[in-house]
């Protein structure tokens, strides 16, 4: 399961992707203000292209209609 941890706003944050749920709609890829996500050429599914750019706006996990993105914050890591 691909995941990655960054430190933002003084706390550690893990972006957790569940590829099994992702349908490759492209909402996170196109609307992430920091361009954290890319889409796999073969499947169109999202992957973490540049996790270090994440600004922790929290929108990707709220917008993802397929529950494929979860932002796990410090306390839960």
């Amino acid at each position: 399961m691909p995941d990655s941890v960054v430190t933002r706003k003084g706390q550690r944050l893990r972006i957790l992707l569940t590829p099994r749920y992702c349908k490759g709609c492209g909402i996170c890829v196109e609307l992430c203000p920091a361009k954290v996500f890319g889409s796999e050429p073969a499947t169109g599914k999202a992957y973490l292209a540049a996790v270090e750019r994440c600004v922790d706006c929290g929108l990707c996990e709220l917008w993802c209609p397929d529950y494929a993105i979860s932002l796990e914050r410090e306390a839960n890591l």
């Binding site: 996990e61 529950y67 979860s70 932002l71």
Partner: peptide, 8 residues
């Protein structure tokens, strides 16, 4: 707020 994993 609940993370997606917690919500699920």
């Amino acid at each position: 707020m609940l993370s997606t994993a917690q919500m699920l």
